[in-house]
Design a protein around this nucleic acid. Structure first.
Lengths: 209, 209, 209, 209
DNA sequence: AATGAATGAGTATTCATTCAT
DNA sequence: GATGAATGAATACTCATTCAT
């Protein structure tokens, strides 16, 4: 009986966690990081206290959700590593990344707020950068990408391209396509002068103060 | 007499207003738009009520500060209209713009949040775009800039370039130089295919819902 | 188990709610509608946030308290429907109503301020008028009440009689008895000329602008 | 020159006071006692500080305005003392009084808030009661008014009649006519039993705690 | 005498977090 | 493990009143 209860409790907990993550993902995407924990609990159909049992603070929840999103991008990059045309693969990855950002208000805010101190997110982004390095290496070998850009550049550019079109988001939700194309014109310019500043080191190497 | 008395009162007011604007500029830059009016008042060394006497709402204060920043950029663009090399002028303008953004958290938030309803800011940005149009026209005539980019593109790219380097801001405050160079490589690629998406319309044409 | 736990939690909540309602009733009665939520919380011995957990806004709390008072009057009218002498019953009802008003500043304010937009209160008053209609009908049938007055007239007169004696409240707390008697002399004058203005329509029929 | 300036200053002050009284009368009537001193100053076209020079506190201003209104009613009662039919005169006075109340939100609030401690207002009301005593005496002599009502009763009834119809003010602005008629039916019932409670003493005899 | 800038206490309301059940 | 009631600090904004000019 106690065993049964515990087993039942565990199953409930797993189900609650799943619901919570789904609700939080949706709520953060729609409303940004300022959505309240109460709203998230309500969307998940669980009690507020249960949210805090699964994640001891709002930042922890936010970090978990964000890492999940980054992991999705890692998977996408992974799938594209075997594509025929590495430049097209890179373009597709970037399009996917920008679209994910455009659909998720909180993701953008987390990316853009170094003060948020989400170490796990920085780690996930470093992993993403490493995976994208594969894509960029293949594209460079094929000669379709300039030699002095790295996976980290590509990943950082996702945020930049999205931000460029963000003020237009409501009047022209596809505007990011313009700036993605423009960025690619720079990235693929294999005869350009070398960039005047070195590529970024992994984020975890220098956690924010 | 009355003039003298009023003048002295006004002098105090002007001093307070200057302090307030300085404190608000600093506080918004450091802490972003969420800094409280109380904090701003404290930094300015005046009472909370005095802040509201000068600006009837937080949004009004934020708008005033932001318009001031945009006006600074307009002045910078204006000065560069007579430079010898229009492409260099454009690069310098963009460098200035990105640096302003990098130093001001609230500015970035205002730019990137179309819902903020700060009509005056939208107007100022439209004016900035128009001024930058002059820079881009000259650069295009000289053949150093692709024909299908506009002043608005350049202005939007300021936010994008800054955002690209934002995650690196603390470990490498100059990283934006790398992405500015990359963006310019795309912008100056006069033989590139035309961009796949039209340039943005003025912001004031599409007020937020 | 869960039931037990919840039951105890609920018991605390019920106790707090009771305290809150008691404190709010008292505070509104003493100080009028302008008493602050903080004062009410303090009187109830609970935190400000708890007040808002029970009632999402001050208006909601005020409406709840007021409806409770009106419901008390409805119950009083209901009890008097079976009295032997319908005119005496009406007089007793009016005495009760005026006394309730005299003891409650907020009640008077709510009644007398159509702009307050408390729809539930308007509904409760309409219900009160309907109940009092029974009393007036019986009194008319018995010939002790003029035919052209309605339950709504009686209900409105409660506020009027109280207001008449309000300036005397402190020096002569029973002064309302004088004006109640005077009003009844008018109401029971069955041979008087018909009133020159029609009786009021239900309040809910004409919500405030 | 100094004389001239002083003379000029005095003329200005008189003009300012007149403007202030007019603006305050209007603002209090429209908005009730909660209208802000700033709003009143603005309507008067003078500075806030000037308002406080003329009246050291908001209550003082409110008292002055209210006394003025009561004085208007005293004048009205005075004029009606020589009317042919004393009962008609009384009815006319009461209609005037109720209409004044209906047109002035602040007046009603002052009447209905004994805590406001406006001694001058209480004095003015006592004077009004004394004047109305003349009207009631004449009506009693003519046999049209019951013997046991006083001028103070009549004055207090003005507020009561107005309050009775106040909840209907928006949907039926003339509803007070119904309740004035009803009140007069009680007042003129010369064969009624004596009222069960003595008439009010002058207000100033018992200032509020 | 007039001005209006400055003050600061006061208001309703929100929300992450804690904890008794 | 789950609940949700309680907390209390924080926020933008208002307004009567003061006072230096």
């Amino acid at each position: 009986m106690t065993d049964g209860a515990t087993a039942r409790g565990r199953a409930d907990m797993v189900r609650n966690r799943r619901r919570l993550l789904a609700a939080a993902t949706e709520a953060f995407a729609e409303c940004g990081t300022e959505v309240s924990m109460g709203e998230i609990a309500q969307r998940a159909g669980i009690a507020k206290g249960t949210v805090f049992r699964h994640f001891p603070s709002k930042n922890d929840l936010l970090a978990a959700i964000t890492v999940q999103l980054v992991d999705g991008l890692i998977a996408a990059a992974d799938r594209l590593r075997t594509a025929d045309d590495p430049v097209t693969a890179l373009r597709e990855f970037m399009a996917t990344g920008v679209e994910v950002l455009a659909a998720d208000r909180a993701f953008c805010e987390v990316i853009g707020r170094p003060s948020l101190q989400l170490a796990e997110v920085r780690g996930a982004i470093d992993r993403l950068c490493a995976t994208v390095d594969d894509l960029t290496e293949r594209a460079k070998q094929q000669g379709g990408l300039r030699a002095d850009v790295t996976g980290a550049d590509i990943v950082l550019l996702l945020g930049g391209i999205h931000q460029t079109s963000l003020p237009l988001l409501e009047q022209d939700p596809q505007a990011w396509r313009r700036y993605l194309a423009l960025a690619l014109d720079g990235l693929c310019n294999t005869s350009a002068t070398a960039l005047p500043h070195p590529p970024p080191a992994p984020l975890l190497a220098a956690p924010p103060a």
